[in-house]
């Protein structure tokens, strides 16, 4: 027996939400292809296929129907976020290992859609950067700086054969964050570092435009009410604030807030990863705390930690804390006194 309501809002389903997210990623992907070559399409397609295979396998093993769960699009979102987080044109086995952890371990071992305490794409990324750090630093260089621009055919070759007709050094270059870290450690001053050719107007050459495109896509989602403003705003504000403070302490060694906002995975993380409702905080105040602390950790890892970027780790760390934050930030319920205890 089904009770009321007997009506449901039209055009609202998990699938539609996921499709919106995918569409919002397109500007960023396009920018990526424009500045770093068309190889990104290859990795997106390869990652999607691998992820769908894992998802399907998991559904078979768990006795779930294939159609509603494969068509909800959640696994494609995971695959794309993963593909955009790991170096483009990496060998296929790297994708396979990362997605194995993302889809099978982080998602399905914890109960599948809606039950995962950690963002699956970030788990996949974290496993790879811990296990295969060399591969994870080989990002394609911006086209202006690359000695050779890999064509689509080259890209397919590189992904499937692990190498190709061109050497890795011909198309990869240390990322701006990497450069900053290595040269900074080597004792070079900020001005010297930022004169490196990899740097563009405010952040990495090309990369800053990709970040701007993610920002655009994210604002589209925000306007579409896929998520509320709390997480992205708090995350970006926290990154900017922390970066400014850190730079104030030692201006010669640290980059400014604009650089931090527009390099690495900050924009992608702010709008597409930290906003994941399953693994994130869900109360308004909780979202602010969740994203605020994540932003702080991101800059801390970048400026003082061992890894060039801290987006994935900061979000994973805050994923652990999300249920705890939620318990203590339950909003006031209608008709209850302010500060009344909820949950616990």
């Amino acid at each position: 027996m089904n009770g009321s309501p007997y009506t449901q809002s039209a055009n609202n389903s998990v699938r539609i939400t996921m499709i919106k997210v995918l569409v919002a990623l397109i500007p960023g992907i396009a920018a990526h292809a424009w500045f770093f070559g068309p190889g990104i399409w290859v990795s997106l397609i390869v990652c999607s296929l691998i992820a769908i295979f894992y998802e399907s396998l998991a559904l078979v093993m768990r006795g779930y129907p294939q159609k509603p769960f494969l068509s909800d699009g959640s696994v494609i979102v995971t695959a794309w976020l993963f593909a955009l987080s790991v170096p483009t044109l990496a060998p296929i086995w790297l994708y396979a290992v990362g997605l194995l952890f993302a889809v099978l371990v982080a998602k399905h071992l914890y109960g599948g859609l809606g039950q995962n305490p950690f963002n699956p794409a970030m788990v996949g990324y974290a496993v790879l950067i811990v296990s295969f750090p060399t591969y994870m630093t080989q990002w394609p260089a911006p086209l202006q700086l690359a000695t050779h621009m890999p064509s689509l055919a080259n890209a397919v070759d590189m992904v499937f054969a692990g190498s190709g007709s061109i050497s890795i050094d011909a198309y990869t270059l240390a990322t701006p964050l990497d450069t900053l870290k290595t040269l900074g450690r080597a004792g070079q001053s900020g001005t010297e570092i930022f004169n490196q050719p990899i740097f563009g107007l405010i952040a990495g050459k090309g990369g800053e435009w990709v970040a701007a495109a993610y920002l655009l896509g994210g604002l589209l989602l925000l306007g579409n009410r896929v998520f509320t403003w709390h997480v992205p705003i708090a995350y970006l504000a926290s990154v900017a604030l922390t970066a400014t403070l850190v730079q104030a302490i030692d201006p010669s060694q640290h980059a400014n807030a604009w650089f931090h906002l527009f390099s690495g995975g900050v924009m992608l993380g702010a709008f597409f990863i930290a906003t994941d409702p399953v693994s994130g905080s869900t109360t308004p105040l909780g979202k602010l705390i969740f994203a605020g602390v994540a932003g702080f950790i991101t800059v801390m890892i970048r400026d003082y930690g061992g890894y060039p970027d801290g987006v994935a780790f900061s979000i994973l760390l805050m994923n652990i804390a999300a249920p705890f934050i939620d318990t203590y930030t339950q909003p006031r319920v209608f008709g209850h006194a302010k500060g009344g205890k909820v949950g616990k």
């Binding site: 027996m1 089904n2 009770g3 006795g63 779930y64 129907p65 159609k67 509603p68």
Partner: peptide, 12 residues
């Protein structure tokens, strides 16, 4: 009121 029945696995 009975426990809602959801035919999650039977959906095709």
């Amino acid at each position: 009121w009975q426990y809602p029945v959801i035919h999650l696995r039977q959906v095709a």
